[in-house]
Amino acid sequence: MNRPAISRRTTRTLVRLTFGNAASLLYLGAVVAAAVLVAVDTLFVAHEDASFAGVWLFLLAAPTVFVFLLGSSAAGAESFGPAWFVYLALTVSVLAQSLALGWFVRLVRGGARRDRTVRPRSA
């Protein structure tokens, strides 16, 4: 029987860890708020010089976003690569850190919920 590379259960667990706890949701909310700030600043505010609003996104996605960007520079892309790669690196970094936060919350709370079930002791 052919099993898919990632089962439904694994996918469900990854989604639950990434989006299913308060710490991850607060982090993702902060990232969305920063992205809205950057979009509003870029589209509706006139500046004589460049704005530093985009720095907040990179600070929220640090340190993993810098690993992706340095990797692209090492692979030969000039100065952080094309814009699509920067957006992709930001997205993957934020999702990876949200997953790490969810995993940490799960670790602190004592593991998976199925491990908390009461099991009879042997005599």
Rank of each mutant, 00 (worst) to 15 (best):
residue 120 P to N: 10
residue 47 H to W: 12
residue 35 A to M: 07
residue 83 A to Y: 11
residue 36 V to A: 14
residue 6 I to E: 05
residue 62 A to N: 07
residue 7 S to P: 05
residue 14 L to H: 06
residue 47 H to F: 08
residue 123 A to K: 02
residue 94 V to C: 09
residue 119 R to A: 11
residue 2 N to Q: 11
residue 14 L to T: 05
residue 65 V to M: 07
residue 101 L to A: 09
residue 100 A to G: 05
residue 119 R to W: 09
residue 47 H to N: 13
residue 121 R to H: 09
residue 62 A to R: 04
residue 5 A to C: 07
residue 8 R to S: 12
residue 104 F to W: 13
residue 71 G to Q: 02
residue 80 F to L: 10
residue 107 L to G: 10
residue 83 A to Q: 10
residue 121 R to P: 01
residue 97 Q to R: 08
residue 32 V to W: 05
residue 23 A to Q: 12
residue 78 E to L: 12
residue 93 S to K: 00
residue 18 T to M: 07
residue 97 Q to L: 05
residue 106 R to I: 00
residue 18 T to W: 01
residue 11 T to E: 05
residue 108 V to H: 08
residue 43 L to R: 02
residue 20 G to W: 02
residue 101 L to H: 06
residue 75 A to G: 11
residue 16 R to Y: 06
residue 103 W to P: 04
residue 34 A to G: 02
residue 73 S to G: 14
residue 7 S to A: 03
residue 38 V to G: 00
residue 48 E to L: 12
residue 58 F to M: 12
residue 105 V to P: 01
residue 75 A to P: 10
residue 85 F to Q: 08
residue 62 A to D: 06
residue 100 A to H: 02
residue 39 A to M: 03
residue 75 A to K: 05
residue 31 V to N: 00
residue 56 W to V: 11
residue 117 T to I: 13
residue 80 F to Y: 14
residue 18 T to L: 07
residue 100 A to T: 05
residue 85 F to W: 15
residue 15 V to M: 07
residue 38 V to K: 07
residue 36 V to Y: 04
residue 39 A to Q: 07
residue 101 L to Q: 03
